[in-house]
Design a protein around this nucleic acid. Structure first.
Lengths: 246, 246
DNA sequence: TTTATTGGTGTCCTATTTACACGTTCGGCG
DNA sequence: CGCCGAACGTGTAAATAGGACACCAATAAA
């Protein structure tokens, strides 16, 4: 069976970000190493990862991760960087872990890092026995292997992306959203406060933001106008997009 | 000898760009496959690449490429993307080539792509038997494996980088340069024409551009002021750098 | 009916962008 | 040695974008 053979020195790791209008969160898997008597040697968390089948593209292998966890297969996913230092598996806990899994603790595994974005609302996680939970990105503690570094790079990447490719912001929002929610995406991810009126001057120039014939309901204040994101309009209006030097 | 063992399903490929004030060029290696009688079966070009030693970081493996070719080891080098489709080695010529090298034509090789930047002036290539030459980036023809795709991604990457991290422009210039040369970097790489006076209004705001007590010599026109790039000043003045939404 | 809460709007000031033309200084050449 | 060709270096006016800032409106809950 070709399709069950894996390239065992290559993996993909997926930094799955979820946004809940309060904070940016990341999906982590609990990892617990037990000794022969079932006592805990250590416990920590890892990013979600996958092996890569020998006849599979890296993108496909990465895609399986959020797909298995959410049942959705059309989510935003992008490769951002590859990590391959021989040291990435050298910490004592990781060495113990690899041995206990029957994996060669000397063999360097190169991992290709992906970022996935989810609007947490509406998403129900499928566990399949693993203990997978959301953690605020600034409260993850010590992660396995070099996963703290991978997470840090993913954050840098997605912040940068948000700034110069605004379409990614909408991946973190439900299909219908308010301008305040959009502003919150920027505020939370970039860690800044923005002025409401100035922000709206910008959104007014985004022709791909479609005001709907619909307002928020069930809120104890003036209900906000709902908008949707027109991806096609975005793509075409990006063509003559200018930045910095051009 | 640990240091001679290689991870043989992982490689690094380096898109080495060189700038000569006329065009952007890329370093390519001639590849010729001969039959048993020494007749040419095909000939084409490949990017410069390397295997990765098992105890070596990816960055180090990539660094060896331009270092071997130029003798310099402080050049700009950055990982930009990893390519791992099983199809990348599937084209007939590539299959023949792999067989003739004694490599497994079925085994997918994941390659980590790097970009290197060189000011072509002053650089003397060290050939060591291989036929390595500069090609204008838009005249490379059909390259081996997926190297056309890798080159295209590298170009996209470096254009984007030039726009929002102006320091990379100086990697393509000699230590002393004129403002017109700097403008030419932007014009050639981004493929646009820029207005001289407006460009200079921008450079006037770049505090890290140091005017020297020196002018061009030997030119048949009014000699231009020479400048140098102060990297430290750049780093510190970037700290409070704003872009788009912040 | 009152209150708490968030939604939605405009102005002034400053900084940045864009379009645009001409005198200057050098080497080369006749 | 004077003229020519070629790139250098400079400023202004108009339009656009950015940043600071405050108040009324609409809803649900009490």
């Amino acid at each position: 069976m070709v399709s069950t053979m894996v390239s065992n020195n290559i993996s993909v790791d997926c930094v799955i970000f979820g946004f809940d209008f309060e904070r940016l969160n990341v999906l982590l898997v609990d990892r617990t190493l037990l000794d022969a008597d079932g006592r805990v040697i250590f416990t920590d968390r890892t990013l979600t990862g996958n092996h890569v089948f020998v006849d599979e593209t890296l993108d496909a292998a990465a895609h399986r991760i959020p797909a298995d966890l959410t049942g959705l297969d059309n989510i935003y996913l992008e490769q951002f960087r590859t990590f391959g230092s021989p040291d990435r598996i050298r910490r004592p806990n990781d060495q113990l872990w690899l041995r206990s899994c029957g994996r060669d603790p000397e063999r360097r595994v190169v991992t290709v890092g992906y970022v996935a974005l989810l609007a947490r609302r509406d998403i129900r996680l499928i566990w399949k026995g693993r203990n997978v939970k959301w953690y605020p990105v600034d409260e993850v503690g010590d992660l396995a292997f070099d996963h703290n570094q991978i997470l840090a790079e993913a954050l840098k990447y997605i912040r940068n992306k948000l700034i110069n490719e605004p379409s990614v912001g909408f991946e973190l929002l439900p299909p219908k959203f308010t301008l305040t929610q959009l502003q919150t995406v920027y505020e939370v991810i970039l860690g800044v406060r923005l002025d409401k009126r100035n922000f709206r001057k910008k959104t007014a120039r985004m022709s791909y933001l479609i005001p709907l014939d619909e307002k928020q309901t069930g809120v104890a204040h003036k209900p906000a106008q709902l908008y949707s994101f027109d991806k096609e309009l975005y793509e075409t209006s990006r063509k003559d997009f200018n930045s910095f030097f051009i």
